[in-house]
Structure formats: C-alpha cells, structure tokens
C-alpha cells in the first residue's frame, strides 16, 4: 500500500487535483462516512454539542456531524469547527457550503482555542501526517506533543476525542498513543478488522471524569473492544500476595515450617522480623 505521507507534506500533497480526486471518489466517501459513524458511536454524544474536527479536509466527516439525529447522527445536529492544512481541500469544502467553521491551520502547531471549549473532538485519517517533520527545526514528537497538549486543554472535563489514523507500523502507533498519554489523556486503542488490509485504528481519548453517570464504569461505557492503555509502572515478576524473602511474613512462614519438622523455634513476638537498630 502506498503511503502519501512518505511522498510530500500534506499541504503540498493535497493540491487541487488530489483534493478533488479524494472528495469525489465514492470509495473514499464510503470509507470516510463509515469511519465517522464509528467514531461518533464511540463519542457517545447525547445532545447537540460543539465539536472539533482535526483534518476536516473537504468536510466529508463534517457533513455527517451537522446532520440531524434522525439521519443517524447521535445527539445531532452538532456545530463543528474544522482545522485543515490543505487550502485546496478547504476550497472544496467552501464550494460544498459545509456548515462548520473552517480554519487553515497546522494541528502540529497546536490548537488555538481557549480551555474547555469543545465537548468532543473527532479526527478521521489525519494524525498520521503529524508523524512527519518537514524541516530540521521541528520534530515528529514535538509536533505530536504540541497537538495533544493543545487538544487536551481545549476539551472540557469529561470530553472525549476519537482519532482514526493509519499508523505506518507498531512503533508509530505507540509513538502517537504515548504522546496522548503524556498530554494527560486516558487513552485506548481500538482496531477494527485487525490483520486485514482494511484494518482501521482508532485512538479513543478521555479527559478526566467530569460527569460520571453512576460509578467509574461510566467512563468506559460504550467502549467495548477498546484496548485501554495503562502506563502506570508495574512491579515486574511478582504475583499478587507473594512475599518478599526476609520479610516478617516470610520469617513467620519459615518458622512454622521448622516447627512442623520438630525443630526448636523461638516464640514469635512483636520484635520478630524487625531490624535491630543501631544504638549506643
């Protein structure tokens, strides 16, 4: 599969001809719309909300966002704001008279909105472009961290973001998801049709608890199949409840063992297993 990311930067790759090809291809339209619906399903929006569309392009996903709930958009119609780096793509969106507000902006330079602006964010086939740095003054990890930090700040507490992207390999997948975790998101990866040519990777991001309905399980409701990433440090090689050699528990167990064998064992006291402090 050819990857356009390897050929040119996005603002140059999506020129007028490529943008038109992308928008008019019925195959791409179908894939984009099914991915947008899947992302909306993961976002679990219940009422009309303000959304951010990162890499909105010609507004293929935006058209679905501004559709009413009777047309299959949960909680719709939403108001959305779209960012894209390709002026040709935005030109097509203007011709189509999409309802959202459009911005010519590079997501790798941050998200220029004040804190707590959006209820949710959606990004369809865009953030793999952030993994490419086009000049020596910027780096892929810097672009990713600026993007996720900006996104984290601009979402309200309890908000969610779903980013569908095409990772080049597993390294890139972990690079993107760990950048999101470092920005403060709770992150999970969902893969539809894994192992096939049509594998689609969704990065599901949550911001804080905010409005939990009921208990903590409310955060993960509706996220079946999402592989939640827990980056807390784990103690390696020890099972739960296993004792450390030399600890009080271990000493008592050994003494009982010896007693059962018929050996003479000193009685247990409050000093058993304690360190002998240095004293004058």
């Amino acid at each position: 599969m050819s990857r356009p990311e390897n050929t040119l930067p996005p603002d140059l790759f999506y020129n007028d001809t490529e943008a038109l090809k992308y928008t008019t291809s019925s195959r791409i339209q179908k894939i984009q719309s099914s991915m947008t619906h899947r992302a909306l399903q993961l976002l679990q929006l219940k009422s009309p909300s303000l959304l951010l569309d990162i890499g909105c392009g010609s507004g293929l996903s935006g058209e679905i966002l501004s559709a009413p709930s009777s047309a299959g958009t949960p909680g719709g119609p939403h108001i959305w704001i779209g960012l894209d780096i390709s002026s040709s793509m935005l030109g097509i969106a203007l011709e189509k008279e999409v309802e959202g507000d459009l911005f010519l902006a590079d997501a790798g330079q941050g998200v220029p909105f004040r804190a707590g602006t959006f209820d949710a964010a959606i990004s369809i086939s865009a953030i793999q472009w952030l993994c490419n740095a086009e000049s020596s003054s910027e780096s892929a990890s810097g672009r990713l961290s600026r993007f996720f930090n900006g996104l984290y700040a601009s979402l309200r507490r309890g908000g969610r973001a779903v980013c569908q992207f095409y990772p080049k390999n597993d390294t890139q997948k972990t690079m993107v998801s760990s950048a999101a975790v470092r920005a403060g998101f709770g992150a999970g990866l969902l893969e539809d049709d894994p192992g096939t040519k049509n594998a689609k990777t969704y990065l599901v991001l949550t911001v804080g608890g905010g409005e939990l309905d009921g208990d903590i399980t409310g955060v993960v409701r509706g996220m079946e199949g999402v592989d939640v990433m827990d980056q807390r440090r784990k103690v390696k090689g020890r099972k739960r409840g296993e004792e450390i050699q030399g600890s009080k528990k271990w000493i008592i167990r050994k003494k009982e063992q010896m007693e059962r064998k018929g050996k003479v064992v000193k009685a247990n006291s409050k000093y058993t297993g304690r360190k002998r402090r240095i004293a004058f």
Binding site: L83, I85, L90, L94, D101, L102, F103, L104, A105, D106, Q109, G110, P112, S135, S137, E138, R146
Partner: peptide, 14 residues
C-alpha cells in the same frame, strides 16, 4: 478570507 481564517504560523513563532 471567505470565512476561513489562516492560522498557519511561520516556523519561528511556533
């Protein structure tokens, strides 16, 4: 322009 704001920054301002 035409309702689209240009928020692209030159490299030294990022």
């Amino acid at each position: 322009m035409e309702g689209v704001a240009n928020f692209l920054l030159p490299g030294h301002l990022v």
